[in-house]
Amino acid sequence: MQSMSSQPQLGKGFDEPVLASQRCFRQILAAMSEPGSVHRLGEDVESPTGVSAAAMLVLLTLVDHETPVWLAPRFASAATYLRFHCGAPVLEAPSAATFALVDGASVDLDLGAFNPGDDRYPDRSATLVVGCAAFEGGRDVSLSGPGIRGDITVSPAGLDAAFWQKVAANNARYPLGVDLILAAGNEIMCIPRSTRIARAAEAC
């Protein structure tokens, strides 16, 4: 056990894991069923430096030892926290990950590197938590599809210029593809693979 004694002190996870994760789950479910809508996750945790509370809360809620996680280099410091609080294996390569924490501002973000599911079980795909800066102030993008009445305009900030093109390409693979949960501060917004990105071309 000596090896554990010397490690830096870990931030705390959920105080009441059962109730807190259920409250978060309800918000994630609502966000996923109404793509583009912004939902607040109110639980108090000490997330690792550089990772938003919302991103960490999504992972604390959804991840366990059966769901390997991949972390973008920018968020590598979250590995110890995830191993401790979720018991989740942290992978070197993204292809086998069930969940991933990625950086929306990165030019290297490659949605095609993650498991898109297969024709028989498209649900066995990866879910990506995408770190961004805020949910307003970015360029306008129009979303439509299941869960959206007509269309909705969103403007998340702090995303790479090619981000929406990649999301549109992900939508084009439907029913395969990955589902995205954008996270900033203590808020989330979901862009599942079924959401169509309009004006993506103009936006980019």
Partner: peptide, 12 residues
């Protein structure tokens, strides 16, 4: 169960 003593030692 996981605990931490005042001196920082973790117990599992």
């Amino acid at each position: 169960c996981v605990v931490r003593l005042a001196d920082g030692t973790m117990g599992f």
